[in-house]
Design a protein around this nucleic acid. Structure first.
Lengths: 235, 235
DNA sequence: CGCCCTTAGTGTATCTTCTACACTAAGGAG
DNA sequence: CTCCTTAGTGTAGAAGATACACTAAGGGCG
């Protein structure tokens, strides 16, 4: 597959290059973070950008996104969903590049996130403290953020940002951060538990300097069953 | 630009071809319809397919979708929105083709729809009576239908399927067809009018064999203003 | 060991929104 | 002028959303 000097590939009509870019969200206390990598090559050398790269001819789009994500950040087996395809003419100064953007959700504790694998410089940034981004990545990021904010309200994807076992306060905090507004504790708990998609565990938090909260986990099977009978998740 | 024998375009790595496909929805009484074209060339010659074609190197994705739509169906200046990008390896038997799918909404009365321009065979089909479709177009259609069903509930896009002036019963009918369930007339009217995004016109229906209904139109400015102050459209 | 600090965990009253439901009004057709 | 069809309207009860404050539990520290 890999040659030192690849043979050229010719077509009757000019073709755009096709890439994938991924907006990886994670929750760090009261901050929603995204992972960025610092570009080593031109264009935009030294600037921060979304992880991503060109789609190979024998992999589909999601495979390409997962491969790039793994190569550049070490992340694997995470929630990934197609966001939007950006195809403006001059979004890449080199040539026409169309990019299929994805967004990913990870929990910081569960995954062995090694931002600095592969000799690249990668790091988490708070969404409200982003550096200047290469290409049209700021726009992609904004689109991803909006999508997350609206999707989190009617699909149970927020759990992807938490460890498998979590106290309800962490879940509420997640929604408060993403939706950017305070929620009432009692109402939140009542509503969430009434949906009957969480399982109350026999464990409690450990090593906290206050009363330990009970842990819960999201039960996907229960959710799927409830969904089939007309139930709709909603925050 | 157009040559009888284009010079070849060569790249270091193989590239997928990039196309757009459009699912055009229209409402015809109690039926949701989509426009299909009958393919003249291989592969799938003679079979029905979504309108669409290859993206040119100097047009962006939406421009490509609008151009193809115009060339193949005569439709122009219509509501168009990106749906999803399909990139499975074997979705086109000739070679790797990644397609950016769009969906469009038109009102049958307002637009001069000429399905048979351009010497192609084009026609409207009821969604529940579709022929076998070329490529993975059935999947694209299904995705578009699901998107329409969910989006119509929280964005005022349904109006795109109606003429500018319409009686409330037509609007209710639209939601009943798309959501596939009956709505209560009094509740529907109360809710819709309470949103304060419709303007009651001084006109009534004409040429109906019963009491004529009052006509309304959707006021986008009003909607935008209300949206800015926290209002959310919802059916 | 006991006090303090912090977060966990709980119930109720009120307001708002959703639902179910049936009759009179208007207009054209015959 | 009668008939047929659809337009247009109100209300009561149920369900869901909101606002709100105290006691319980556990670790830290003096």
């Amino acid at each position: 597959m890999a040659k030192t000097r690849p043979t050229p590939h010719c077509y009757e009509f000019p073709r755009a290059a096709l890439s994938v870019d991924i907006v990886v969200f994670a929750l760090d206390g009261d901050n929603l973070k995204v992972m960025l990598i610092q570009r080593g090559l031109q264009p935009y050398a030294g600037q921060w950008a979304l992880p991503g790269g060109f789609v190979r001819i024998h992999e589909n789009l999601e495979q390409a996104a997962r491969r790039e994500l793994h190569e550049e950040t070490g992340l694997h087996d995470i929630y990934l969903e197609q966001l939007y395809t950006f195809g403006e003419l001059n979004r890449d100064p080199r040539e026409r590049v169309v990019t299929v953007a994805y967004y990913a959700l990870v929990n910081l504790e569960g995954h062995d996130v090694r931002p600095s694998t592969d000799a690249r410089n990668a790091a988490w940034f708070s969404l409200d403290n982003l550096p200047k981004l290469a290409f049209d990545h700021h726009r992609i990021m904004k689109t991803a953020h909006e999508r997350l904010r609206s999707k989190v309200r009617y699909q149970p994807i927020g759990f992807e940002l938490l460890p498998q076992k979590f106290p309800l306060r962490k879940l509420q905090n997640l929604y408060e951060v993403i939706l950017d507004r305070r929620l009432d504790k009692r109402n939140f708990r009542r509503k969430m538990l009434a949906m009957d998609i969480l399982v109350e565990l026999k464990q409690a938090e450990r090593d906290v300097a206050h009363r330990a909260a009970r842990l819960y986990r999201f039960d996907k099977n229960k959710y799927d069953r409830r969904t089939k009978t007309g139930f709709n998740f909603e925050i």
